[in-house]
């Protein structure tokens, strides 16, 4: 069997000026071709104005087992949210 093309993760920026968002992945021989293929697959209905492609092997991710130590500490820090503070009605919108 021939050598398999590497996997690229595809990120698209939508019409409304938001950040690039992960939409899926595809195989391609190189990054340039990955962009061409991503255009054909992921922007057929006006979904985007910009494409990023990243080789999947280049992504470093958190491990599922680390979910607790990494994300739980923020659960107890409710003072980081605006609703933690009671502001009197007469102050108006703040």
């Amino acid at each position: 069997m021939s050598k398999e093309w590497p996997l690229y993760e595809i990120f698209i920026r939508g019409q409304h000026g938001l950040s690039h968002r992960h939409v899926g992945s595809l195989h391609a021989p190189d990054a340039e071709t990955a962009i061409k293929n991503a255009r054909d697959v992921y922007t057929r209905r006006n979904e985007g104005v910009s494409i990023w492609v990243v080789e999947a092997a280049a992504i470093t991710a958190t491990a599922p087992g680390d979910k607790g130590p990494i994300f739980e500490p923020s659960e107890s820090k409710i003072y980081r949210h605006p609703t933690f503070y009671d502001i009197p009605d007469e102050i108006g919108h703040m």
Binding site: S2, K3, W5, P29, D30, T33
Partner: peptide, 16 residues
């Protein structure tokens, strides 16, 4: 299609 897949792989390697 095998020769196309292989050709594109070879081209990508050459460029790299």
């Amino acid at each position: 299609g095998a020769w196309v897949r292989d050709g594109l792989t070879a081209h990508a390697e050459k460029k790299r």
